[in-house]
Design a protein around this nucleic acid. Sequence first.
DNA 1: ACCTGAACACCGTTCAAGT
DNA 2: ACCTGAACACCGTTCAAGT
Lengths: 182, 182
Amino acid sequence: MDAAIACFRRRGFHQATMAEICAEAGISAGALYRYFSSKTDIIGAIAEDKRGESDEAFMRAAEQHGFVPAVCLAARAFFEKFADGDGALIAEIMAEAIRDDTVSTPLRASDASSVEIFTRAIIAAQKRGEVDATLDPKIATNTLFATLEGIGLRRAFCREIDADAALLQFRALVERYLEPRK
Amino acid sequence: MDAAIACFRRRGFHQATMAEICAEAGISAGALYRYFSSKTDIIGAIAEDKRGESDEAFMRAAEQHGFVPAVCLAARAFFEKFADGDGALIAEIMAEAIRDDTVSTPLRASDASSVEIFTRAIIAAQKRGEVDATLDPKIATNTLFATLEGIGLRRAFCREIDADAALLQFRALVERYLEPRK
DNA sequence: ACCTGAACACCGTTCAAGT
DNA sequence: ACCTGAACACCGTTCAAGT
């Protein structure tokens, strides 16, 4: 019944009411509380299964086309979600995760596994000479993730919804950051 | 009576109640609504006067010590706020601003003036040869802001509170991004 | 066993009455 | 003019009663 994501997308996490979610799902309040122990718990569940869907896709792309193109592919998918209007929801999940461990614990777990995958890809790319070998792979991964989220959030804030422009901006930054120094 | 910021810092925007804020401010509910038309309006007001305090400080530093050191100085101040526990509040303001025009309109105005100042500083730095002249100054400014916020948010999410480490991470990224190409 | 929905507790907002 | 605080409307959560 996670199809009640629709309510959060439409009205935001704090504006959407449990009654609306129940109506959308076609169940009663009591039944909803059988599946989720609280409203916060619902974001926790959403956050949990949204992440890490595309990790394998990224790994294959990194091997076939190189690290930077693979990152840009992942970035494009991310920016398109923002352009679709999920920017506010992502920001709300972030805010909730910073404040509330119920949300952050599962999110951090799946985040850690994505970081792991990207870190390994960076190490491989460093061996191939695609990425500056003096960069710490884990810090570089964190920086990349932070940059991605930062650009997505800022563009949502500025009401800029062109995913291509965001990608161009991101690509220029990433190329310069990762480029091997002479 | 903005000293009721304390409540938001302690408990978060959505957890803090109007009753708490009234108690902290020593006034009644009715009186509070004389000064602010709603709870959301309070964040709008907070967001408005938080921004742009340090713009002049940045301008002086940029002229005296160069662009990159000046940016890092501003970044340090920003990361320290996050480390102080304002990370969640900033994220909440962001989320609220993306959803709600009451919050975003004043915020975007003061953001635009900061962007303006940084953009001019980049143009000056490009003339001095400190910053790659092929970068679009406005896009570069936006990227810098996005990066700053992204790193701050991500570190708050990961519960990393070392402002020095954040600054090091940010500095490495910025130096590589802005460095003149040969 | 599982679901319903009225009831409860709580919180943002208002407004008649006070000063 | 300005403030008070009881009252109102609303929403997350629970639980006695139903199937």
